[in-house]
Structures are given as structure tokens and as C-alpha cells.
Design a protein around this nucleic acid. Sequence first.
DNA 1: CCTACCGATCGGTAGG
DNA 2: CCTACCGATCGGTAGG
Lengths: 186, 186
Amino acid sequence: MRKTIDTREAILERAVDLASTDGLEGLTIGRLAGELEMSKSGLFGHFGSKEDLQIATIERAGRRFIGRVVEPAYRSTPEGAERLRALVNGYIDHMAEDIFPGGCFWAAASAEFDGRPGPVRDAVKDAMAAWLAELERQAEAAGADDPKQLAFELHALAAGANQRYQLFGDPEAFEHARRGIERLLG
Amino acid sequence: MRKTIDTREAILERAVDLASTDGLEGLTIGRLAGELEMSKSGLFGHFGSKEDLQIATIERAGRRFIGRVVEPAYRSTPEGAERLRALVNGYIDHMAEDIFPGGCFWAAASAEFDGRPGPVRDAVKDAMAAWLAELERQAEAAGADDPKQLAFELHALAAGANQRYQLFGDPEAFEHARRGIERLLG
DNA sequence: CCTACCGATCGGTAGG
DNA sequence: CCTACCGATCGGTAGG
């Protein structure tokens, strides 16, 4: 039992990385099995379908993001302006550190599935909605005039930095984003 | 000759739409041929490889964007602040009008290929670079303090609106983007 | 522009 | 968790 769970976790860790570079559709059972040196059917048995694997991968990416960005911000800052800044800067830091190879998992998954209705798209949507709601909550606690507007702009700057950095390999992207964030928050 | 060119153009028009929803990798020769009611090899003959088809599709999407966004802005406004506003608002309008089904072609293509070096990625990069350079040029003509920073933020707001609108189907995304743009330009 | 193929890979199943 | 398969589809080719 233990080992089965461990194997499943190991599969999903690799799956998140593979999906970050090649997309959730490019995440094929055969390639994933090959990289983990197990048979296709052995891997397949941990999931009921490719769709289930994709959804489990999205959930796993969500836990990684929470562990690396959200929890540190909660531990180090009080609710409000400070936590809002820590969340957005943490998001940017984790892009700059290439924690998801191939760029932000969420930007990729969102662009890939936004036009394809179904449970995979819904899983991406739920994760993004939770992140935006968290930003709005902290913006409200910070006493922002328009918390939704602020959350939108902060996320747009971070997502814009990811797109620019991934495409041009230009670390200046992060500087631009940070400057915009400081102008909004400071 | 004429007809060969027309056929090629028709193929690429469908290809841009298909790639907008299913990605440049999901753009398969078989599906495209099926939708156009021609044989795979008949379609394939217009291109030398799938990669060539992808690059030709990117170029075609670029011409569509220029025709629908850039040229109207040039015709209706003088260089500088007015043209900058017209370009960014035109970009947002063309997202809201669903000119690319499945969301902005560029956001999708960029996220899909940013982690895969090669000529396809380079074609996406060149198109995005030309767009950002155009924004920077108009920002400079408008007398902005930091034209690169302004261009980055304007594009980020527009791209953020696309992501949000495509994922949540929420037209408020465009209002948020327009509000941010007015604050930056006004 | 077509028919008729090729080897490789896809998601998924049978049976152990 | 495996081997051994299935039908479908992939990009691409031969030959006309």
C-alpha cells in the first residue's frame, strides 16, 4: 500500500515537470512510463484514464505551488498588504527559480485548455480561481480601493513576466514586473 | 497557379483557427485535411513538413493580427500616445470579438512553444518581439518616462485579460484591463 | 491533387 | 506490477 502511494507520487512529480514543458496533452503515458522505467500498463493502472492522470497532475502542481509560494507567505507575513506583496513576489521568485521547468505550469495549462470544455479545464480553472481569490482577500485586508482590480493587475504583471521570460529568456522581465508591483502596492 | 495559392491560403486560414483552439501541435495534418475535405497528402504537398505548416500558420496569424489591429490603429491615429492607446485597445477588442476562436493565438502559441527550442518557437518569438517593439516605439513617441516599462505593463494587462476571459468567460476581464490601461496612459 | 501505403506512437485492454 | 496485444491516428512517402 505504502509503496503504491509512493509510486503514484513519483509518477505525478515527473508528470508535473513533463506537462510544464510539453503540455498536459503532450504528457503521454508512454513517455512518462519510459522516463520512470516502468511499463505503460503499470503506470496506467494508477489512474483510470489519461484524463484522470491530467487532473491528478494539476492537483499535484497545485500542492507544489501552495508549498513553495502560498505557505511561505503565510508563515512570514500577517494578513493584508505584506502578505499580498509576499504572495506576488513569491510567484515571481518561483518563476525565476525555474521550479516548473518550461515555465509556469499554470500559464501553460490555462492557455492549453481554456478552449476545451471538460473536467481538465475545470481543474485548471478551480486552481486559478483559488489563487485569484486569495489575492483579492489579501487586497481587501490591505484596504485597497478596488481589491478585484488590484488582484487582476498584480496577477497580470506576474503572468506577463513569465511569458516574456520564457519566450525571450530575458531576466529583465522580472524587473519590469517588480517595478509595476511596487507602483501598485507602494 | 492562382488556384494553388488560393488553396494554400484557405488551408492556412483554417489552420490559424484550429491552432487557436487545439494548439500548434494539436494542429494535425489529418484533421485539417478532413475539415477542408481534401486528402492528407494533397494538403501535405503545400508544405514540406508539419514544422513548415506550423511556421506558415504563425505567419498567417501575424498577418491577420496586423490587418485587424495594427493597420486600423495606424490609419486612425497619429504616432504617440493616441496610437499606443489604439493599439492596446485594438488588441483587447479583437480578443473580445473572438477573432481567434479559443483565445488569443499568440498567448496560446507562446505558452506552448516557449520551452521547446527550434524554428517554431523562433517564429512565435519574432512576432511577439515585433509587437512589443511597436508598443515601445509608440510609448517613446508619446514621451513616456520609461517606454519599455510602459510597453511591458500594457501588454501584460491585455494578456492578463485574455487569460482570465478565456478561462472564466468573464467579460469583466476586459474592464479590468481597460481600467489599468487608462491609469497608465491617462 | 489522389490512393495506398509505411513505421511509430497514441490511449486503452486482456490476462496473468 | 508485467507482456502482449488492439484499433486509431500520427507525420511522412511512393507512385501516379
